[in-house]
Simulated assay, not measured.
Amino acid sequence: MRAEDGCLLRIFAGEGDKHEGRPLYEWIVAQAQERQLSGATVYRGLMGFGAHTRVIHTFKIERLAEDLPIVIELIDTRDKLNGLLTFLEQHTTSGLLATLQPIEIRMIQGRPK
Rank of each mutant, 00 (worst) to 15 (best):
E26P: 00
C7L: 00
R44H: 13
E66V: 02
K18A: 12
R22K: 15
G14L: 03
G45P: 00
A13P: 01
H52L: 14
E15W: 03
A65P: 00
Q36M: 08
K18Y: 04
L24S: 03
E4P: 02
Y43L: 14
E62Q: 06
F12H: 14
A3V: 13
A65Q: 13
P23R: 12
T58M: 07
D17K: 10
H19T: 04
E66G: 07
G14R: 13
T58H: 10
Q31M: 12
E26M: 09
E4L: 10
L64P: 02
E15K: 09
L8W: 07
E4R: 14
E62M: 02
S38M: 13
I28L: 07
G50E: 08
K18C: 10
L37P: 04
M47D: 00
E62F: 06
Q31R: 15
I70M: 15
G50N: 10
P23E: 09
E20L: 14
A32M: 08
G48N: 08
G6Y: 05
Y25A: 13
P23L: 06
Q33S: 09
P69L: 08
V42R: 04
R63F: 00
G48V: 02
A30H: 10
R63A: 03
F12P: 01
G39F: 08
G21Q: 10
F12K: 05
F59D: 12
E62Y: 07
E15N: 14
T41L: 05
A51W: 08
C7A: 15
L68T: 05
H19S: 12
V42E: 03
A65M: 02
R22C: 10
T41K: 04
G45A: 07
E4M: 11
I11Y: 03
E34R: 15
H52R: 13
F59W: 11
E15G: 12
I70R: 15
K60I: 01
G6L: 06
S38N: 08
F59V: 04
L68A: 08
C7D: 05
V29F: 02
H52N: 13
W27R: 11
A32P: 05
L8G: 02
L8D: 05
Q36G: 02
W27M: 07
G21A: 06
T41C: 05
H57C: 01
R54K: 12
V55W: 04
D67L: 02
L8S: 08
A65S: 15
Y25C: 13
E4Y: 12
G45Q: 07
L8C: 09
G16D: 15
R44C: 04
S38Q: 15
L9K: 05
Y43N: 10
I28C: 06
S38L: 14
T41E: 04
D67R: 08
